[in-house]
Design a protein around this nucleic acid. Structure first.
Lengths: 221, 221
DNA sequence: TTGGATGTTGACTGACCAGTCAATCTATTT
DNA sequence: AAATAGATTGACTGGTCAGTCAACATCCAA
């Protein structure tokens, strides 16, 4: 009952296997790294034949590209949405930080792959996706710029630099988790969100605004 | 006069070629990436025979490891020195930021290789050097801890998190330069130093201390 | 029932490249 | 001058793997 069957629409036939391969690739890339794994490792992990990988993807590279774009486009969408909303800066940046941190919490392997193999690989892949990555910077920079115009953030620190610093802190945080240099309990994730915002916004706000959020823990419970 | 000759001491004979190979490797790794270059590329770039690389290094990996350790140990030394000194936190962190930024200014290729191929490569190399990298975190964390004890930095933000954020901002900054996402004029380097400290310390300081540094530009000139 | 389209298989190939090694060269020592 | 040790050379090997392809399976439409 309810076995795998063709889609309701007259669209494509069986995207199941394609997804299976992508998910297997996430695990394999995370475990062995993109460069030191074989395409056959992915096929084995997915439980499909070697050749099927090439039925759905033109190359090993394309598998990684797909994973990156899939996730990054969701993030860009989220940033755009937040950006166009009416929230105060702290909450806008907070929403972005929360999204990225939750992405890691939800699928650490995928985020590990994206960060380690794409975002930070200045050669090959980094080059390919640099414009996509840049877009995130621009959007975040725009949010900062608005806050500066409204007098909430200092103008002396370039908006683009601030965006970079903001993203840098988050990426380093994930890297710390990836390397097991930092605890990864539920509470740690929540606390991290707060600390990211407190640290970065604290450094960017004008003294008039200043941070007066709960010093102890603003966590659940 | 003063041509190449055996060392004064009875030590090794001609370390010239070894250095030549290392320097060539920096250029090749920076240009093509560690994984997509051949050992013969390094030999060619250095103007030596293929086999000579293996006379001085046990493997391709060892070349990269050597480059990383050479530089990272100098940085650790600098951090320890700064740490043990009597300067205020801002200046301690400022010295560290300045050292890293100047390292990039002085030899961008080397820093690119270290960051892209080692520091950020969670697999293979990252794993190998994780303890060395961790040490830098610990030292910086110690500096923050002291500042917290003296009441200059807030205690609500974990010292280790702060260290990570600090380093993350700097690494992202270098990444921005590496990817050509940020301008790299002499002035930009100096301004970056100031912004790093202003942003991070601003977020970490207690409201009592607060940042009252020159808002415009504290640059030279 | 047949035919075409799409999905699936895995053995095979062609290229690539890290690392080896035997030979040659250079310097130093006696 | 002969001997020893280290430096230098580059052709070669062995293994690895991305990508191909021809065959087989399954599904749907006419």
């Amino acid at each position: 009952m309810s076995a795998a069957r063709p889609p309701a629409e007259g669209a494509k036939a069986a995207p199941d296997k394609r997804r299976l391969i992508l998910d297997a690739a996430i695990r394999v890339f995370a475990r062995q790294g993109f460069h030191s794994c074989r395409v056959s490792d992915i096929a084995d992990e997915a439980g499909v034949a070697y050749g099927l990988v090439y039925h759905y993807f033109a190359s090993k590279d394309e598998v990684l590209n797909t994973l990156f774009l899939e996730r990054w486009s969701v993030m860009l969408e989220l940033i755009r949405e937040v950006d166009s909303g009416p929230l105060p800066v702290r909450e806008k940046l907070g929403a972005i930080a929360a999204f990225i941190i939750d992405s890691y919490r939800h699928d650490p392997d995928l985020m590990k792959v994206i960060i380690v193999e794409v975002t930070r690989a200045a050669n090959s892949f980094g080059d390919t996706h640099i414009d996509t990555i840049r877009e995130a910077y621009e959007l975040i920079g725009g949010i900062v710029e608005k806050a500066q115009a409204e007098g909430q953030f200092k103008a002396e620190i370039e908006a683009r630099f601030a965006a970079m610093a903001f993203y840098g802190v988050i990426e380093q945080l994930l890297t710390g988790w990836i390397f097991n240099l930092r605890p990864q309990g539920e509470e740690d994730f929540e606390r991290a969100k707060w600390m990211v915002i407190e640290t970065v916004c604290g450094g960017l706000e004008t003294s008039a605004v200043s941070a007066r959020s709960a010093p102890g823990n603003t966590l659940h419970d």
